[in-house]
Design a protein around this nucleic acid. Structure first.
Lengths: 248, 248
DNA sequence: CGTATCCTTGATTCGCTTCAACATTAGTGG
DNA sequence: CCACTAATGTTGAAGCGAATCAAGGATACG
Protein backbone atom coordinates (compact mmCIF):
# COMPACT_ATOMS: atom_id res chain seq x y z
CA UNK A 1 0.00 0.00 0.00
CA UNK A 2 2.77 2.47 0.83
CA UNK A 3 5.00 3.93 -1.80
CA UNK A 4 8.51 2.54 -1.91
CA UNK A 5 11.33 4.83 -0.87
CA UNK A 6 14.20 5.22 -3.34
CA UNK A 7 17.31 3.54 -2.03
CA UNK A 8 20.64 4.97 -3.06
CA UNK A 9 23.26 2.28 -3.15
CA UNK A 10 26.40 4.27 -3.65
CA UNK A 11 28.69 1.29 -3.52
CA UNK A 12 26.78 -0.57 -6.23
CA UNK A 13 28.11 -0.26 -9.74
CA UNK A 14 25.11 0.86 -11.72
CA UNK A 15 26.75 2.12 -14.87
CA UNK A 16 25.17 1.25 -18.22
CA UNK A 17 28.47 -0.15 -19.47
CA UNK A 18 28.13 -2.98 -16.95
CA UNK A 19 24.53 -3.71 -17.80
CA UNK A 20 23.50 -6.63 -19.96
CA UNK A 21 20.45 -4.73 -21.19
CA UNK A 22 22.58 -2.30 -23.13
CA UNK A 23 21.30 -3.76 -26.40
CA UNK A 24 17.69 -3.04 -25.54
CA UNK A 25 17.80 0.07 -23.42
CA UNK A 26 18.57 3.74 -23.85
CA UNK A 27 22.26 3.25 -24.75
CA UNK A 28 21.41 1.07 -27.73
CA UNK A 29 23.28 2.32 -30.78
CA UNK A 30 25.82 4.36 -28.84
CA UNK A 31 29.54 3.76 -29.17
CA UNK A 32 31.46 2.10 -26.35
CA UNK A 33 33.30 5.28 -25.53
CA UNK A 34 30.01 7.13 -25.31
CA UNK A 35 28.44 4.50 -23.09
CA UNK A 36 31.39 4.82 -20.75
CA UNK A 37 30.42 8.42 -20.21
CA UNK A 38 27.00 7.45 -18.86
CA UNK A 39 28.36 6.47 -15.46
CA UNK A 40 26.68 9.35 -13.73
CA UNK A 41 23.41 8.98 -15.61
CA UNK A 42 21.80 6.34 -13.42
CA UNK A 43 21.51 7.86 -9.99
CA UNK A 44 20.15 4.81 -8.27
CA UNK A 45 18.12 1.71 -8.74
CA UNK A 46 14.77 1.25 -7.16
CA UNK A 47 12.84 -1.92 -6.40
CA UNK A 48 9.08 -1.95 -6.85
CA UNK A 49 6.95 -4.77 -5.53
CA UNK A 50 4.12 -6.29 -7.52
CA UNK A 51 1.03 -4.05 -7.65
CA UNK A 52 2.94 -1.06 -6.33
CA UNK A 53 3.14 2.26 -8.12
CA UNK A 54 6.40 3.53 -9.57
CA UNK A 55 4.66 6.88 -9.96
CA UNK A 56 1.12 8.17 -10.07
CA UNK A 57 -0.68 10.62 -12.31
CA UNK A 58 -0.06 14.08 -10.90
CA UNK A 59 3.26 13.25 -9.26
CA UNK A 60 5.90 15.88 -10.01
CA UNK A 61 8.18 14.80 -12.80
CA UNK A 62 11.83 14.50 -11.92
CA UNK A 63 13.14 11.34 -13.52
CA UNK A 64 12.54 8.81 -16.20
CA UNK A 65 12.99 5.13 -15.54
CA UNK A 66 14.58 2.25 -17.40
CA UNK A 67 13.25 -1.16 -16.48
CA UNK A 68 16.08 -3.30 -15.24
CA UNK A 69 13.97 -6.31 -14.25
CA UNK A 70 10.30 -7.14 -14.25
CA UNK A 71 7.44 -5.47 -16.05
CA UNK A 72 4.91 -2.69 -15.68
CA UNK A 73 1.64 -1.36 -16.95
CA UNK A 74 0.72 2.28 -17.39
CA UNK A 75 -2.86 3.44 -17.08
CA UNK A 76 -4.98 6.55 -16.90
CA UNK A 77 -8.14 7.03 -14.88
CA UNK A 78 -11.09 8.86 -16.38
CA UNK A 79 -13.26 11.16 -14.28
CA UNK A 80 -16.02 8.59 -14.00
CA UNK A 81 -13.72 5.88 -12.70
CA UNK A 82 -13.13 4.05 -15.96
CA UNK A 83 -9.58 2.87 -16.33
CA UNK A 84 -7.62 2.53 -19.54
CA UNK A 85 -4.33 0.68 -19.77
CA UNK A 86 -2.10 2.65 -22.16
CA UNK A 87 0.80 0.24 -22.32
CA UNK A 88 2.76 -2.70 -20.99
CA UNK A 89 6.51 -2.27 -20.52
CA UNK A 90 9.25 -4.87 -20.33
CA UNK A 91 12.93 -4.88 -19.43
CA UNK A 92 14.99 -2.27 -21.23
CA UNK A 93 11.99 -0.09 -21.95
CA UNK A 94 11.57 3.42 -20.61
CA UNK A 95 8.87 4.78 -18.32
CA UNK A 96 7.88 8.33 -17.48
CA UNK A 97 8.38 10.15 -20.77
CA UNK A 98 4.85 11.49 -20.53
CA UNK A 99 5.91 13.62 -17.57
CA UNK A 100 8.22 15.95 -19.43
CA UNK A 101 5.48 17.94 -21.12
CA UNK A 102 3.79 19.31 -18.02
CA UNK A 103 6.48 18.47 -15.47
CA UNK A 104 3.98 16.12 -13.84
CA UNK A 105 3.18 12.52 -14.69
CA UNK A 106 -0.01 12.04 -16.65
CA UNK A 107 -0.50 8.35 -15.96
CA UNK A 108 0.13 5.68 -13.33
CA UNK A 109 2.93 3.16 -13.63
CA UNK A 110 2.29 -0.06 -11.74
CA UNK A 111 4.54 -3.10 -11.43
CA UNK A 112 3.02 -6.32 -12.78
CA UNK A 113 5.57 -8.35 -10.82
CA UNK A 114 8.40 -7.57 -8.42
CA UNK A 115 10.59 -5.28 -10.49
CA UNK A 116 13.59 -3.00 -10.50
CA UNK A 117 14.18 0.24 -12.38
CA UNK A 118 17.12 2.53 -13.03
CA UNK A 119 16.33 6.07 -11.99
CA UNK A 120 17.54 8.62 -14.52
CA UNK A 121 17.24 12.17 -13.26
CA UNK A 122 15.86 14.22 -16.11
CA UNK A 123 18.12 17.18 -15.33
CA UNK A 124 21.13 14.92 -15.60
CA UNK A 125 19.88 13.44 -18.84
CA UNK A 126 19.44 16.91 -20.31
CA UNK A 127 22.90 17.93 -19.21
CA UNK A 128 24.64 14.83 -20.46
CA UNK A 129 22.83 14.69 -23.77
CA UNK A 130 24.20 18.14 -24.54
CA UNK A 131 27.71 16.74 -24.60
CA UNK A 132 27.21 13.12 -25.60
CA UNK A 133 25.72 13.30 -29.09
CA UNK A 134 24.82 9.64 -29.21
CA UNK A 135 22.79 10.01 -26.04
CA UNK A 136 20.89 12.94 -27.47
CA UNK A 137 20.00 10.98 -30.59
CA UNK A 138 19.09 7.81 -28.71
CA UNK A 139 16.87 9.66 -26.31
CA UNK A 140 15.05 11.33 -29.17
CA UNK A 141 14.66 7.97 -30.83
CA UNK A 142 13.20 6.44 -27.69
CA UNK A 143 10.59 9.20 -27.52
CA UNK A 144 9.86 8.96 -31.21
CA UNK A 145 9.48 5.19 -30.95
CA UNK A 146 6.93 5.69 -28.22
CA UNK A 147 4.94 7.96 -30.54
CA UNK A 148 5.08 5.42 -33.37
CA UNK A 149 4.05 2.66 -31.00
CA UNK A 150 1.10 4.71 -29.78
CA UNK A 151 0.01 5.28 -33.37
CA UNK A 152 0.06 1.53 -33.80
CA UNK A 153 -2.22 1.10 -30.82
CA UNK A 154 -4.52 3.81 -32.16
CA UNK A 155 -4.75 1.89 -35.42
CA UNK A 156 -5.50 -1.28 -33.54
CA UNK A 157 -8.21 0.35 -31.44
CA UNK A 158 -9.67 2.31 -34.31
CA UNK A 159 -9.92 -0.25 -37.05
CA UNK A 160 -9.47 -3.81 -35.86
CA UNK A 161 -11.97 -6.35 -34.62
CA UNK A 162 -11.62 -8.15 -31.32
CA UNK A 163 -9.75 -11.19 -32.62
CA UNK A 164 -7.44 -9.12 -34.78
CA UNK A 165 -6.57 -7.02 -31.75
CA UNK A 166 -5.72 -10.01 -29.64
CA UNK A 167 -3.69 -11.58 -32.44
CA UNK A 168 -1.74 -8.34 -32.84
CA UNK A 169 -1.20 -8.24 -29.11
CA UNK A 170 0.14 -11.79 -28.97
CA UNK A 171 2.45 -11.22 -31.94
CA UNK A 172 3.75 -8.07 -30.32
CA UNK A 173 4.42 -9.87 -27.05
CA UNK A 174 6.12 -12.71 -28.88
CA UNK A 175 8.36 -10.31 -30.74
CA UNK A 176 9.33 -8.49 -27.56
CA UNK A 177 10.07 -11.70 -25.69
CA UNK A 178 12.18 -12.83 -28.62
CA UNK A 179 14.19 -9.60 -28.53
CA UNK A 180 14.94 -10.40 -24.88
CA UNK A 181 16.25 -13.85 -25.63
CA UNK A 182 13.14 -15.76 -24.63
CA UNK A 183 11.16 -18.18 -26.72
CA UNK A 184 9.05 -16.56 -29.45
CA UNK A 185 6.44 -19.27 -29.05
CA UNK A 186 6.05 -19.80 -25.34
CA UNK A 187 5.72 -17.16 -22.67
CA UNK A 188 4.01 -16.14 -19.52
CA UNK A 189 1.73 -13.11 -19.52
CA UNK A 190 2.02 -11.04 -16.38
CA UNK A 191 -1.24 -9.18 -16.83
CA UNK A 192 -4.83 -10.25 -16.26
CA UNK A 193 -7.51 -10.68 -18.91
CA UNK A 194 -9.06 -7.50 -17.66
CA UNK A 195 -5.83 -5.56 -18.17
CA UNK A 196 -5.38 -7.00 -21.64
CA UNK A 197 -8.97 -6.07 -22.39
CA UNK A 198 -8.53 -2.55 -21.11
CA UNK A 199 -5.45 -2.13 -23.28
CA UNK A 200 -7.22 -3.52 -26.35
CA UNK A 201 -10.50 -1.72 -25.77
CA UNK A 202 -12.37 -4.94 -25.03
CA UNK A 203 -14.15 -6.52 -22.08
CA UNK A 204 -12.39 -9.31 -20.27
CA UNK A 205 -15.03 -11.82 -21.41
CA UNK A 206 -14.29 -10.98 -25.01
CA UNK A 207 -10.58 -11.50 -24.43
CA UNK A 208 -11.25 -14.84 -22.78
CA UNK A 209 -13.51 -15.96 -25.63
CA UNK A 210 -10.96 -14.96 -28.24
CA UNK A 211 -8.28 -16.95 -26.41
CA UNK A 212 -10.56 -19.98 -26.39
CA UNK A 213 -11.38 -19.53 -30.08
CA UNK A 214 -7.70 -19.34 -31.00
CA UNK A 215 -7.14 -22.49 -29.01
CA UNK A 216 -10.01 -24.31 -30.73
CA UNK A 217 -8.55 -23.30 -34.07
CA UNK A 218 -5.15 -24.67 -33.13
CA UNK A 219 -3.43 -21.29 -33.26
CA UNK A 220 -2.32 -21.25 -29.64
CA UNK A 221 -2.40 -23.31 -26.46
CA UNK A 222 -3.62 -21.39 -23.45
CA UNK A 223 -3.35 -22.34 -19.83
CA UNK A 224 -4.29 -19.32 -17.78
CA UNK A 225 -1.46 -16.86 -18.25
CA UNK A 226 0.81 -19.33 -19.97
CA UNK A 227 0.68 -19.00 -23.77
CA UNK A 228 2.13 -21.25 -26.43
CA UNK A 229 1.90 -20.09 -30.02
CA UNK A 230 1.36 -23.06 -32.32
CA UNK A 231 0.73 -21.31 -35.63
CA UNK A 232 2.36 -17.93 -35.90
CA UNK A 233 1.56 -17.49 -39.59
CA UNK A 234 -2.06 -18.23 -38.81
CA UNK A 235 -2.06 -15.39 -36.30
CA UNK A 236 -0.41 -13.08 -38.78
CA UNK A 237 -2.99 -13.98 -41.40
CA UNK A 238 -5.70 -12.90 -38.99
CA UNK A 239 -4.51 -9.32 -38.86
CA UNK A 240 -3.89 -9.03 -42.57
CA UNK A 241 -7.26 -10.27 -43.74
CA UNK A 242 -10.13 -8.68 -41.88
CA UNK A 243 -12.91 -11.09 -41.05
CA UNK A 244 -15.82 -10.04 -43.31
CA UNK A 245 -14.43 -9.29 -46.76
CA UNK A 246 -11.01 -8.32 -48.11
CA UNK A 247 -10.92 -4.96 -49.79
CA UNK A 248 -11.08 -4.71 -53.60
CA UNK B 1 -0.75 14.70 -57.67
CA UNK B 2 2.89 15.68 -57.85
CA UNK B 3 4.97 16.38 -54.77
CA UNK B 4 5.75 19.99 -54.11
CA UNK B 5 9.35 21.10 -54.39
CA UNK B 6 10.83 22.93 -51.42
CA UNK B 7 11.41 26.56 -52.28
CA UNK B 8 14.24 28.30 -50.51
CA UNK B 9 13.53 31.98 -50.19
CA UNK B 10 16.83 33.30 -48.98
CA UNK B 11 15.70 36.89 -48.88
CA UNK B 12 12.70 36.12 -46.71
CA UNK B 13 13.09 36.62 -43.01
CA UNK B 14 11.94 33.33 -41.53
CA UNK B 15 13.31 33.63 -38.03
CA UNK B 16 11.09 32.55 -35.18
CA UNK B 17 11.58 35.89 -33.46
CA UNK B 18 9.57 37.54 -36.25
CA UNK B 19 6.79 34.97 -36.18
CA UNK B 20 3.46 35.63 -34.52
CA UNK B 21 3.06 31.96 -33.73
CA UNK B 22 5.85 32.05 -31.19
CA UNK B 23 3.34 31.55 -28.38
CA UNK B 24 2.06 28.30 -29.83
CA UNK B 25 5.01 26.79 -31.58
CA UNK B 26 8.32 25.22 -30.67
CA UNK B 27 9.83 28.40 -29.15
CA UNK B 28 7.03 28.72 -26.60
CA UNK B 29 8.53 29.18 -23.15
CA UNK B 30 11.94 30.23 -24.38
CA UNK B 31 13.48 33.55 -23.43
CA UNK B 32 13.76 36.34 -26.00
CA UNK B 33 17.50 36.04 -26.14
CA UNK B 34 17.19 32.33 -26.78
CA UNK B 35 14.61 32.83 -29.51
CA UNK B 36 16.96 35.26 -31.21
CA UNK B 37 19.41 32.42 -31.55
CA UNK B 38 16.96 30.35 -33.60
CA UNK B 39 17.60 32.36 -36.78
CA UNK B 40 19.29 29.49 -38.50
CA UNK B 41 16.79 26.88 -37.32
CA UNK B 42 14.17 27.33 -40.01
CA UNK B 43 15.90 26.57 -43.27
CA UNK B 44 13.00 27.40 -45.51
CA UNK B 45 9.27 27.52 -45.72
CA UNK B 46 7.31 25.24 -47.93
CA UNK B 47 3.81 25.61 -49.32
CA UNK B 48 1.59 22.55 -49.59
CA UNK B 49 -1.62 22.63 -51.57
CA UNK B 50 -4.81 21.02 -50.29
CA UNK B 51 -4.75 17.22 -50.54
CA UNK B 52 -1.01 17.13 -51.20
CA UNK B 53 1.42 15.19 -49.08
CA UNK B 54 4.01 16.93 -46.93
CA UNK B 55 5.65 13.53 -46.56
CA UNK B 56 4.71 9.91 -47.00
CA UNK B 57 5.24 6.79 -44.91
CA UNK B 58 8.64 5.43 -45.85
CA UNK B 59 10.15 8.76 -46.90
CA UNK B 60 13.61 9.27 -45.42
CA UNK B 61 13.49 11.46 -42.36
CA UNK B 62 15.45 14.68 -42.55
CA UNK B 63 13.35 17.41 -41.06
CA UNK B 64 10.46 18.15 -38.80
CA UNK B 65 7.87 20.73 -39.71
CA UNK B 66 6.10 23.51 -37.87
CA UNK B 67 2.77 24.51 -39.34
CA UNK B 68 2.86 28.17 -40.22
CA UNK B 69 -0.54 28.32 -41.88
CA UNK B 70 -3.29 25.84 -42.64
CA UNK B 71 -3.89 22.38 -41.26
CA UNK B 72 -2.99 18.74 -41.83
CA UNK B 73 -3.99 15.21 -41.09
CA UNK B 74 -1.65 12.30 -40.48
CA UNK B 75 -2.66 8.77 -41.34
CA UNK B 76 -1.30 5.27 -41.61
CA UNK B 77 -2.29 2.62 -44.12
CA UNK B 78 -2.74 -0.97 -43.04
CA UNK B 79 -1.71 -3.84 -45.28
CA UNK B 80 -5.27 -4.55 -46.31
CA UNK B 81 -5.92 -0.99 -47.40
CA UNK B 82 -7.68 0.21 -44.29
CA UNK B 83 -6.73 3.75 -43.39
CA UNK B 84 -6.51 5.22 -39.93
CA UNK B 85 -6.20 8.93 -39.26
CA UNK B 86 -3.82 9.34 -36.32
CA UNK B 87 -4.19 13.07 -35.84
CA UNK B 88 -5.21 16.51 -37.05
CA UNK B 89 -2.67 19.31 -36.76
CA UNK B 90 -3.20 23.06 -36.69
CA UNK B 91 -0.97 26.14 -36.87
CA UNK B 92 1.97 26.09 -34.48
CA UNK B 93 1.90 22.32 -34.13
CA UNK B 94 4.74 20.07 -35.19
CA UNK B 95 4.76 17.32 -37.79
CA UNK B 96 7.22 14.55 -38.48
CA UNK B 97 8.35 13.57 -34.99
CA UNK B 98 7.49 9.96 -35.76
CA UNK B 99 10.35 9.85 -38.26
CA UNK B 100 13.18 10.18 -35.76
CA UNK B 101 12.94 6.65 -34.44
CA UNK B 102 13.68 4.78 -37.66
CA UNK B 103 14.98 7.69 -39.72
CA UNK B 104 12.00 7.22 -42.01
CA UNK B 105 8.51 8.58 -41.69
CA UNK B 106 5.96 6.10 -40.41
CA UNK B 107 2.84 7.92 -41.54
CA UNK B 108 1.52 10.23 -44.23
CA UNK B 109 1.01 13.94 -43.65
CA UNK B 110 -1.61 15.50 -45.92
CA UNK B 111 -2.73 19.12 -46.09
CA UNK B 112 -6.43 19.63 -45.36
CA UNK B 113 -6.26 23.05 -46.99
CA UNK B 114 -3.60 25.12 -48.73
CA UNK B 115 -0.92 25.35 -46.07
CA UNK B 116 2.59 26.44 -45.29
CA UNK B 117 5.19 24.85 -43.03
CA UNK B 118 8.56 25.82 -41.62
CA UNK B 119 11.17 23.22 -42.46
CA UNK B 120 13.41 22.45 -39.51
CA UNK B 121 16.35 20.26 -40.47
CA UNK B 122 16.70 17.67 -37.73
CA UNK B 123 20.50 17.86 -37.79
CA UNK B 124 20.31 21.57 -37.18
CA UNK B 125 17.81 21.11 -34.39
CA UNK B 126 20.08 18.59 -32.70
CA UNK B 127 23.05 20.88 -33.01
CA UNK B 128 21.29 23.98 -31.79
CA UNK B 129 19.53 22.27 -28.90
CA UNK B 130 22.94 21.30 -27.56
CA UNK B 131 23.78 24.94 -26.98
CA UNK B 132 20.38 26.55 -26.44
CA UNK B 133 19.04 24.90 -23.31
CA UNK B 134 15.57 26.30 -23.71
CA UNK B 135 15.33 24.75 -27.13
CA UNK B 136 16.33 21.35 -25.82
CA UNK B 137 13.67 21.48 -23.14
CA UNK B 138 10.96 22.78 -25.45
CA UNK B 139 11.65 20.15 -28.03
CA UNK B 140 11.44 17.43 -25.41
CA UNK B 141 8.21 18.92 -24.18
CA UNK B 142 6.76 18.92 -27.67
CA UNK B 143 7.55 15.23 -28.08
CA UNK B 144 6.23 14.41 -24.63
CA UNK B 145 3.05 16.33 -25.31
CA UNK B 146 2.53 14.24 -28.42
CA UNK B 147 2.81 11.10 -26.29
CA UNK B 148 0.30 12.41 -23.77
CA UNK B 149 -2.04 13.43 -26.55
CA UNK B 150 -1.83 9.96 -28.08
CA UNK B 151 -2.64 8.40 -24.72
CA UNK B 152 -5.73 10.58 -24.65
CA UNK B 153 -6.79 9.27 -28.03
CA UNK B 154 -6.15 5.71 -26.89
CA UNK B 155 -8.44 6.33 -23.94
CA UNK B 156 -11.06 7.75 -26.23
CA UNK B 157 -10.86 4.82 -28.64
CA UNK B 158 -10.65 2.23 -25.92
CA UNK B 159 -13.36 3.24 -23.53
CA UNK B 160 -15.78 5.79 -24.98
CA UNK B 161 -18.98 5.37 -26.91
CA UNK B 162 -19.62 7.04 -30.25
CA UNK B 163 -21.26 10.18 -28.90
CA UNK B 164 -18.72 10.62 -26.16
CA UNK B 165 -15.95 10.41 -28.74
CA UNK B 166 -17.49 13.06 -30.92
CA UNK B 167 -18.14 15.32 -27.94
CA UNK B 168 -14.51 14.96 -26.87
CA UNK B 169 -13.41 15.72 -30.40
CA UNK B 170 -15.51 18.89 -30.60
CA UNK B 171 -14.31 20.11 -27.22
CA UNK B 172 -10.73 19.49 -28.25
CA UNK B 173 -11.18 21.41 -31.48
CA UNK B 174 -12.87 24.25 -29.64
CA UNK B 175 -10.03 24.46 -27.18
CA UNK B 176 -7.42 24.51 -29.92
CA UNK B 177 -9.25 27.18 -31.92
CA UNK B 178 -9.52 29.26 -28.76
CA UNK B 179 -5.78 28.99 -28.17
CA UNK B 180 -5.31 30.42 -31.66
CA UNK B 181 -7.49 33.43 -31.01
CA UNK B 182 -10.60 32.13 -32.75
CA UNK B 183 -14.05 31.73 -31.30
CA UNK B 184 -14.43 28.81 -28.89
CA UNK B 185 -18.01 28.33 -30.01
CA UNK B 186 -17.96 28.70 -33.76
CA UNK B 187 -15.53 27.16 -36.18
CA UNK B 188 -15.06 25.50 -39.50
CA UNK B 189 -13.90 21.89 -39.66
CA UNK B 190 -11.48 21.23 -42.47
CA UNK B 191 -11.89 17.46 -42.49
CA UNK B 192 -14.66 15.25 -43.84
CA UNK B 193 -17.00 13.07 -41.79
CA UNK B 194 -15.07 10.10 -43.02
CA UNK B 195 -11.79 11.53 -41.72
CA UNK B 196 -13.35 12.38 -38.37
CA UNK B 197 -14.75 8.87 -38.25
CA UNK B 198 -11.42 7.30 -39.06
CA UNK B 199 -9.78 9.33 -36.32
CA UNK B 200 -12.47 8.40 -33.80
CA UNK B 201 -12.72 4.76 -34.81
CA UNK B 202 -16.24 5.21 -36.20
CA UNK B 203 -17.93 4.99 -39.57
CA UNK B 204 -18.88 8.23 -41.28
CA UNK B 205 -22.60 7.44 -40.92
CA UNK B 206 -22.19 7.17 -37.18
CA UNK B 207 -20.42 10.53 -37.06
CA UNK B 208 -23.18 12.09 -39.11
CA UNK B 209 -25.88 10.63 -36.88
CA UNK B 210 -24.14 11.85 -33.75
CA UNK B 211 -23.90 15.35 -35.21
CA UNK B 212 -27.63 15.26 -35.94
CA UNK B 213 -28.41 13.99 -32.47
CA UNK B 214 -26.38 16.76 -30.85
CA UNK B 215 -28.23 19.24 -32.99
CA UNK B 216 -31.62 17.82 -32.02
CA UNK B 217 -30.64 18.07 -28.38
CA UNK B 218 -29.65 21.70 -28.78
CA UNK B 219 -25.99 21.11 -27.99
CA UNK B 220 -24.65 22.36 -31.31
CA UNK B 221 -25.76 23.80 -34.62
CA UNK B 222 -24.32 22.00 -37.62
CA UNK B 223 -24.25 23.15 -41.18
CA UNK B 224 -21.94 20.85 -43.06
CA UNK B 225 -18.46 21.65 -41.82
CA UNK B 226 -19.52 24.75 -39.96
CA UNK B 227 -20.04 24.06 -36.25
CA UNK B 228 -21.54 26.27 -33.59
CA UNK B 229 -21.41 25.04 -30.02
CA UNK B 230 -24.55 26.11 -28.15
CA UNK B 231 -24.12 24.23 -24.87
CA UNK B 232 -20.52 23.55 -23.99
CA UNK B 233 -21.32 22.28 -20.49
CA UNK B 234 -23.78 19.85 -22.03
CA UNK B 235 -21.02 18.46 -24.21
CA UNK B 236 -18.69 18.18 -21.24
CA UNK B 237 -21.37 16.38 -19.28
CA UNK B 238 -21.55 13.80 -22.04
CA UNK B 239 -17.97 12.69 -21.61
CA UNK B 240 -18.09 12.64 -17.83
CA UNK B 241 -21.22 10.53 -17.45
CA UNK B 242 -21.21 7.48 -19.68
CA UNK B 243 -24.58 6.82 -21.28
CA UNK B 244 -25.85 3.65 -19.56
CA UNK B 245 -25.13 3.97 -15.85
CA UNK B 246 -22.64 5.95 -13.77
CA UNK B 247 -20.25 3.83 -11.75
CA UNK B 248 -20.97 3.17 -8.06
C1' DC C 1 -24.21 24.12 -65.18
C1' DG C 2 -23.16 19.56 -64.73
C1' DT C 3 -20.80 16.14 -62.07
C1' DA C 4 -18.25 14.21 -58.37
C1' DT C 5 -17.90 14.47 -53.56
C1' DC C 6 -19.79 14.79 -49.29
C1' DC C 7 -23.54 14.40 -46.12
C1' DT C 8 -27.92 12.69 -44.15
C1' DT C 9 -31.27 9.34 -42.92
C1' DG C 10 -33.65 4.74 -42.67
C1' DA C 11 -33.74 -0.44 -42.26
C1' DT C 12 -31.30 -4.39 -41.12
C1' DT C 13 -27.42 -7.14 -39.44
C1' DC C 14 -23.75 -8.40 -36.58
C1' DG C 15 -20.18 -8.16 -32.99
C1' DC C 16 -19.36 -7.04 -28.66
C1' DT C 17 -21.16 -6.08 -24.15
C1' DT C 18 -23.88 -7.18 -20.41
C1' DC C 19 -25.67 -10.21 -17.11
C1' DA C 20 -25.16 -14.45 -14.92
C1' DA C 21 -23.44 -18.77 -13.22
C1' DC C 22 -19.72 -21.58 -12.41
C1' DA C 23 -14.72 -23.23 -12.44
C1' DT C 24 -10.13 -22.59 -11.18
C1' DT C 25 -6.27 -20.66 -8.97
C1' DA C 26 -3.91 -18.10 -5.49
C1' DG C 27 -3.50 -16.30 -1.16
C1' DT C 28 -4.55 -16.38 4.01
C1' DG C 29 -5.15 -17.75 8.44
C1' DG C 30 -6.79 -21.31 11.54
C1' DC D 1 -1.60 -28.58 5.84
C1' DC D 2 -6.05 -27.91 4.82
C1' DA D 3 -10.20 -24.91 4.82
C1' DC D 4 -11.76 -20.68 3.53
C1' DT D 5 -12.12 -16.70 0.70
C1' DA D 6 -11.00 -13.50 -2.82
C1' DA D 7 -9.43 -12.92 -7.30
C1' DT D 8 -9.29 -14.51 -11.80
C1' DG D 9 -10.86 -17.02 -15.77
C1' DT D 10 -14.40 -19.53 -18.64
C1' DT D 11 -18.72 -20.08 -20.85
C1' DG D 12 -23.73 -19.31 -22.08
C1' DA D 13 -27.84 -16.38 -23.24
C1' DA D 14 -29.86 -12.02 -24.17
C1' DG D 15 -29.60 -7.11 -25.45
C1' DC D 16 -27.81 -3.15 -27.59
C1' DG D 17 -24.84 -0.03 -30.20
C1' DA D 18 -22.44 0.66 -34.20
C1' DA D 19 -21.63 -1.25 -38.85
C1' DT D 20 -23.53 -2.29 -43.07
C1' DC D 21 -26.49 -1.74 -46.90
C1' DA D 22 -29.16 1.43 -49.43
C1' DA D 23 -31.19 5.63 -51.24
C1' DG D 24 -31.71 10.40 -51.69
C1' DG D 25 -30.14 15.23 -51.04
C1' DA D 26 -26.86 19.13 -50.52
C1' DT D 27 -22.51 21.31 -51.81
C1' DA D 28 -18.40 22.34 -53.94
C1' DC D 29 -15.73 22.52 -57.90
C1' DG D 30 -14.15 22.68 -62.65
Amino acid sequence: MKATVPITVASLKVACSQCNLVELCLPFGMSESEIDRLDELVGARRKIKRQQHLYRAGDPFEAIYAIRAGSFKTDVLLEDGREQVTGFQMTGEMLGLDGISTEAHSCNAIALEDSEVCVIAYSKLEELSRVVEGLQLQFHKVMSREIVRDHGVMTLLGSMRAEERLAAFLLNMSQRFTARGFSPAEFHLRMTREEIGSYLGLKLETVSRAFSKFQDEGLIAVQQKHIRILDITGLKRLIQHPSPSPRP
